[in-house]
Write a protein that binds this DNA or RNA. Structure first.
Length: 227
DNA sequence: TACCAGGAGAAAA
DNA sequence: TTTTCTCATGGT
């Protein structure tokens, strides 16, 4: 479904444009897990405020979060939006982590088993689970988010309404199981999505010169201007 | 003022 | 089974 050479050419173009991204922006795997919940449909800036509040309250660890009252937790993470909902989701994730025996026990599970277990937690959907698998557990799982769909859609590589797991499998099949590549690739897609294209912004042009991707025998159509 | 941001789950159709 | 609704703060 997705061509390996085209995906590698796109990666090369993004990498040349933006350089190393050093993802995930967190200090520990546990912090990655919390951030994955907090960033659901939310700007990362607001997630940082919530994480800062947790750190200042010495609550950026499993024992504290387990005993913290859900309403107190909600107030701490308020800047991230959906704060009552996300407070309960963080509680669910922490309870699951405790039940499963902690990060060490989880790290020996097979990826599919770990993924299924994550998806059993209320509040952890496919993208959140894959964020955690890739960035907290170094598993070769490709994260599909709205940015990924938008970029591939503009390159006319997908229609945009493909099933999540189908699209994820297409990336993994085309690129092979390489968690370091997946880590950087997704980070670059997000980086690119946040880029304000000077060409598109400063002229009447409806294309972005970051987004031409040339391969040996094909050239992508340029991306359409962001809406 | 209106729209958007690194989704997910429940309810309705 | 598929579509629609709800959750919410902060920036532009």
């Amino acid at each position: 479904m997705l061509d390996r050479n085209i995906l590698l050419a796109l990666y090369a173009r993004l990498s040349e444009s933006y350089g190393p991204q050093h993802w995930w922006p967190a200090q520990t795997p546990f912090e990655v897990m919390l951030g994955a919940i907090l960033t659901q449909n939310t700007a990362w800036k607001n997630v940082e405020r919530a994480v800062d509040n947790l750190r200042e309250a010495s609550s950026l660890n499993l024992p504290m979060l387990l005993q913290l009252d859900v309403n107190v937790l909600a107030e701490l993470i308020r800047p991230s939006g959906y704060y009552k909902l996300k407070a309960q989701r963080l509680k669910n994730l922490c309870a699951w982590l405790e039940k499963m025996g902690g990060m060490e026990k989880l790290s020996v599970l097979q990826t599919t088993e770990l993924r299924d277990s994550l998806l059993s937690v209320n509040g952890v959907g496919p993208e959140t689970a894959d964020d955690i698998l890739l960035y907290a557990f170094d598993r070769p799982v490709f994260v599909i988010d709205t940015y990924t769909r938008r970029l591939l859609q503009r390159l006319n590589l997908i229609t945009g309404d493909e099933d999540y797991d189908l699209l994820r499998a297409a990336f993994e099949s085309a690129l092979g199981a390489d968690y370091r590549l997946f880590n950087e690739y997704h980070a670059l897609i997000v980086r690119h999505a946040k880029q304000k294209c000077s060409l598109a912004e400063n002229s009447s042009a409806d294309t972005c010169n970051h987004c031409y991707v040339e391969t040996g025998n094909s050239v992508f159509k340029p991306l359409e201007k962001a809406r």
